[in-house]
Design a protein around this nucleic acid. Structure first.
Lengths: 231, 231
DNA sequence: TGTACATCAGTGAACGCGCGTTCACTGATGTAC
DNA sequence: TGTACATCAGTGAACGCGCGTTCACTGATGTAC
């Protein structure tokens, strides 16, 4: 390996160390990430960080992007660990993976799904990776649908046309043949999943539910019933 | 009115003005509320605020408490505006009131349901008022239940015993005669409501659903179907 | 009604802290001949 | 292999800003006689 690439390798390691330290500080300070704090933890002078990141916001953006990636990978791996035919198992696996990831990385979860950070506006690039989980969920439903195994719970409320149109556009974008009614319920599940995880992570469930793990699995099963995934 | 009570009245007005200004600043800065910022907006010196609030955290606590109260009142008023017999109408009214309140006061909503504020720990008193909305929802379901009008959608997943126990405790505390299965679904609706509002307020729906209002009402109707509120 | 005193709101300076970012610099490491 | 030069990482001081909180103070307002 040439000398040039050695320098490059050290540089890469340094960038990794900065990100790792920043993630740790995020855990301590919430979203109020400070460059000086990161530098302090690394035993380095704050200005040295500017060799690696042009500004605090750029570091934040990288952290956000990688967090989406990390969450998305965790969910995807959980889905892949189960046979394609076991759609309910995959559904629950993805939901559980999201919850586990959030529990293991609460501050990164807050970064992605908490209040917007004051003085920081997320660039465009952070929008696409945010969709990974909901796409996974939709894929699972699509598998069950195309296998003719989907038995959606019959509910009286019809899909309004405006919403049908929005869903149609998304379906066409993904070129999945999903009926609008199914995607509608997948979205309901998506909201439920992140709503419940957010409640749990931010402590909004304290004093009500103690068997949080059981409760989570139960709720995700109810939604799977609603969508009609085979048991 | 005596002179003493006049001074007291001026003091009360001042406190109100501080809180109002703080709420406006919250809108600009997110949760990073600063006393100096509030004082600046009021054309007053920062130290003067200490005549009215012993510390920044106390001001924050008051704002949080009053926000819960404001949200709770909005929801309660919406429910009362409809006849007791119209349980679905009341359900939707409460949900819509929550959404409207959140849309009108996004930063206060973030204060209540967003990421925890770095360096601030909410005192005990903030826990009880947080329950108002879910209690309202449970009351509506209880009305339908005791009138024998509840037709819950049949879903296969049974209630795990651990969760049943948690729900039992809550039911006994409230002395509502609600079956555990019903409260279970009320909770699902509660999570869905705040999950969806959070998604909308924090911009997580951008680029997917455009007919947000219709979508919201639709989802809340689906949940009402699930609980089995009469149409 | 008038005066002496007490209460209280608001001032302004100060303390000690933290922050992001710039900039000229030192010294080590890598490159070219 | 040895030397001259270029590249780059990290330093430390500085700028200009913001923050919460304390404290002695000035004046105005209220109270008691």
């Amino acid at each position: 390996m040439s000398a040039a690439s050695l320098r490059a390798r050290v540089r890469t390691e340094m960038i990794e160390e900065i990100k790792a330290t920043a993630r740790k500080r995020l855990a301590a300070d919430g979203a109020g990430l400070s460059l000086r704090g990161v530098a302090r933890d690394m035993g380095i002078v704050a200005s040295a960080l500017y060799r690696y990141f042009p500004s605090r916001d750029d570091l934040l953006t990288v952290l956000i992007l990688e967090s989406y990636e990390s969450l998305g990978n965790a969910a995807a791996r959980a889905a892949e660990a189960r046979p394609t035919g076991d759609q309910r198992g995959r559904w629950l696996a993805v939901c559980t993976a999201v919850r586990d990831w959030a529990t293991a990385n609460p501050s990164e979860y807050g970064l992605l799904y908490g209040s917007p950070i004051p003085g920081y506006t997320a660039p465009r690039d952070t929008i696409a990776p945010a969709a990974t989980v909901v796409l996974l969920l939709a894929d699972i439903a699509a598998d069950a649908e195309s296998a003719g195994l989907l038995r959606p719970a019959p509910l009286a409320t019809p899909l309004p046309n405006s919403v049908r149109g929005d869903l149609r556009i998304l379906i066409d974008e993904q070129q999945s043949g999903l009926p609008e009614e199914v995607l509608d319920r997948v979205f309901l599940g998506w909201t439920q999943l992140f709503g419940l995880v957010t409640f749990e992570i931010f402590g909004r469930l304290d004093g009500t539910i103690t068997a949080v793990g059981d409760y989570f699995e139960h709720q995700m099963n109810l939604i799977a019933d609603l969508i009609g995934l085979p048991a």
